[in-house]
Each structure stands twice: as C-alpha cells, then as structure tokens.
Nucleic acid binder design. Sequence first.
DNA 1: GCTGATTTGACAACGATTCTCAATCGCCAT
DNA 2: ATGGCGATTGAGAATCGTTGTCAAATCAGC
Lengths: 133, 133
Amino acid sequence: MTSTDATPPLRPTRQRIAVAEAMASFDDFRSAQEIHELLGRRGEHVGLATVYRTLQRLADAGEVDMLRTEDGEAIYRRCSDTHHHHLVCRSCGRTVEVEGPAVERWTRAIASEHGFTDVSHTLEIFGTCPSCG
Amino acid sequence: MTSTDATPPLRPTRQRIAVAEAMASFDDFRSAQEIHELLGRRGEHVGLATVYRTLQRLADAGEVDMLRTEDGEAIYRRCSDTHHHHLVCRSCGRTVEVEGPAVERWTRAIASEHGFTDVSHTLEIFGTCPSCG
DNA sequence: GCTGATTTGACAACGATTCTCAATCGCCAT
DNA sequence: ATGGCGATTGAGAATCGTTGTCAAATCAGC
C-alpha cells in the first residue's frame, strides 16, 4: 500500500464552497432538497445532483451528520467533531447535541459481549421541546 | 369526542393473517418487498400495497419493529413486547435483541433536563458478528 | 494556451412507498 | 341466510427522494 488512495483529489469548487457555507449557516437538520432551494434563493445556483454529491462527501468526511427521518428522508446538519447524539423536537425540529459517555461504554460492552467487532451505533432522542409543549 | 376512535375496527382478513404468519416465520429484518415475494412464493398472493399497509398497522400496533437501513429502506421484524434495541450484523444481517435499562433512564433524564416531554428514542448498534468477523 | 482528469448540470432512470378507486369482503342486524 | 354498508383489497398510476448518465465546463499543472 503505497498510499491507498481511497480519497481522490478534492477540488474546492464554487459549488462545494456554497454548500459548505450553507451548512455552516444554520443549526438544524435540513434535507438535500431544502439546501438546494436555499442556495437557489441566495442566487448561488447549484445543481441538485451536485448538492446530493457534496452532502455525501461531507457526511463521509464526518463534517456533517446525516440521519433519516421517520419516513426515510436523509437530513443533514453540520456537527462538532466529537461523537454525540441528538435530542430532536418532534414538532419544531429544534435540536440539541447531547453526549453520554455511559451510553458509548454500554454499547461497546454489549457488542463485545456478543462477539461483535467494528462497532458503531445510532441514537436519537425525540420529544416535544419546552416551547412546543 | 364521544370516543376518540383513533383505532378503527380491524378485520382479520386472509391477507392480514398471511402477513402476520409470515412475520412470525423468521427472525431477522425483512423489507416489505421481500415479504411480499415470500408470500407469493408460498402461494399466498397478497398485493404489494396491502403488504405495506399491513406492516404499517403492525408497526403502529407495536407488534413489529420497523427501522431504516442506511439507505432509507424500511425493514420489519416481529419483536417481543418489551422495549428493546438491536445489535445488527453489518454483513449478514443477524440481529440480537438487547435491553439496557440504563440507557432508558439516561435518555429520559437528558430529555427532561432540556425540558422535553413525551420522549421516545431510537438506538441501533451495528457491528460485525463473530461468524462474519 | 494545451491537456487530461475532475466536476457539473439537466434530465432520465430508479426504487421504495403511497394513492386511487372500483370491485370484494366481513360483520352484524334483520 | 340475507342484505346493507363500511372496511379492505389489488392493479396500476402517481409521488418523491435519490442516483445514474454523459456531454459540456472547469481546474491544475505544464
């Protein structure tokens, strides 16, 4: 393995920058389509397919979180680089990042207890936030 | 609201029974399409739309678990009636039901700490099982 | 400026899921 | 049993998010 290029050269194009900036501009989860629209409204036209491609790259690179709504739609959000989970308001979509070392430990323990390796997990908490309650 | 009927009468039709039996016949997660196919092969023809409708009912009734694969497809599995989570093998799909009272407590605590009510959560653990490792 | 690899965008293609709506079916009172 | 009637079904069309296609545009380096 001289330099296992799983990562081909990445170019900072106008489109990629636009998407990255858009992601930086809000705090909650948005779908690819919403981001595409947002960019359009801002005058930064970026093709829908490109938005999808870019978001995937960002997600792979761990720069954004991607999760699925109940009905299977992918939604994205910029995130801090530490591992964490989300507390999401069912009605207004407001999200809070939460951490739980105990949960991390627990999942690892359970997994190895069953002989599973290379473990990862997803955890989302849903509820009604104070202002929507 | 004389008797807030959120649950209209449910009829035990041939189709619903067939789907329920199919669900009882295996242990791992299957997609609606797979179940539809399975029934077809068994000679029990049930329309695809009906399979979808029935699985949704079952999921709403808490008789089956529904979760989403990484790519957004819905998959279903019969489940015990106690609240639990799944440890899923990324390569062969084998699943193990796990329980974690600590996690339940933790999510409830975190949520109320932020003023969220009516809380629920999803938690899945993915990994490579012993036989696939 | 030229060249080759990367990236883009418009649009077609896809696949899962839902909708439509007429034909059937199950339940229940007669 | 029988008839009425709302629940249910099925076949196919319609949605909708997402991915594929491929020629044109763009970029890095020479």
